[in-house]
Design a protein around this nucleic acid. Structure first.
Lengths: 205, 205
DNA sequence: AAAAAATTTAAACAAACATTTAAAATATTT
DNA sequence: AAATATTTTAAATGTTTGTTTAAATTTTTT
């Protein structure tokens, strides 16, 4: 083996993450996971009790992994411009390492009463939103236009995350290789902050 | 019944769309669909041969339904500003009627070699992109900044579609009712074009 | 080194699944 | 109205699913 030896439990967890992220809960099977971990299906249940429990672990882990960095950077003590650039850069790098993460989390949350919505509601961090306060202060000082914070935040998230959600579609439509896609999202590290900041700095009618 | 009588085939097709959009291919079962259509499972196979074939029909239909209007409006013969406003407005109304459509299409296309990527590749419309030409002409005339078209197009799509992809997440995070969510995306009919147009009209450094 | 605990294996399990069959019921054609 | 085609039903098919069992093996403890 090229990689160092791992515990069976760890091999199964990593295999489960691979399989769940690629196929989602419904299409992934215990056998898929066991095969990908190079063990047998009994061990999956031996270490994790059930497919559902294993999935819950992966889901929570992935959710935290994806959205905790978001909150952390946006609550950083940085000037507005630097913060937005840093946010887009860090999120892009995170998603380049794990491009299937947002689709995984969000696809399990569709359908009004998905069981994973509850898991998400639990994990949902309601910590003070320093970013919102910052934008309101800047607006009060007249440095940026008066805005609806949610609109700006959602636009920022959309522009960073959506390209990864629609990655395969984009690659087909624009005839991109994986390298070209990564180069494309790297370019967005400039485009997105410019677009947001230009909007903020120029008052509406 | 409140609705007029429908053929069994039609009832099954509509039930299949409901179920597939909510659960995805993997988690949806023939029994779900039969129950939702108020028939028995044998009729699903009688009319559509297999779950896979039925899914393919729904997928193609949904794909066309979602992305043909996009191409149509962007190739319209309209001034830039009017076109962007019209695009956001029409897409938002389309997605308000069928909020699960983009997640459905895109989630089945994840995983490098998803079988539905091929279906999508077939359906992919390579018709001339009047919108791209239009932006290049406006840039040549000096009316807007020099831009990477793909960056602008993806940003536009992202800001319109992503809120629907992350609808349930957003509703939990922002503590929104469905009505409030719809009101939020209605507000975006102004925000998104303003953001795009402000960016286009103000030259970069 | 013996005993105990933890891990791994192969096989089996019942439940859920997509699909098929054959007969019954209904609608259409002759 | 008889014959034919279509639609519907209920039951059974074989397969795949998640999960369990019990024995074999390895590791750890005594």
């Amino acid at each position: 083996m090229s990689k160092v030896d791992q515990s069976t439990e760890c091999k199964i967890r990593e295999a489960a993450k691979r399989v769940f992220l690629r196929k989602g809960f419904g299409s992934a099977t215990t056998r898929d996971i066991a095969e990908s971990a190079e063990t047998n299906i009994a061990l999956v249940n031996y270490y994790f009790r059930s497919k559902e429990r294993l999935f819950q672990e992966i889901f929570r882990e992935s959710f935290v992994e994806t959205f905790v960095p978001v909150a952390r950077i946006l609550n950083d003590d940085l000037p507005l411009e630097a913060k937005i650039y840093k946010f887009v850069d860090h999120m892009t790098e995170l998603l380049k390492r794990d491009p299937l993460l947002p689709m995984f989390v969000l696809s399990e949350m569709r359908g009004e009463n998905s069981e994973f919505c509850e898991t998400m509601a639990e994990l949902h961090d309601v910590s003070s939103n320093r970013f919102k306060i910052q934008l309101e202060e800047e607006a009060a000082k007249g440095n940026i236009r008066n805005i609806d914070f949610d609109q700006v935040e959602v636009s920022l998230m959309s522009m960073v995350i959506f390209p990864f959600i629609s990655m395969n579609m984009l690659k087909i439509k624009k005839n991109m290789t994986t390298e070209q896609f990564y180069s494309f999202v790297d370019d967005r590290k400039k485009t997105i902050p410019e677009m947001i900041l230009t909007y903020l700095r120029h008052p509406g009618k």
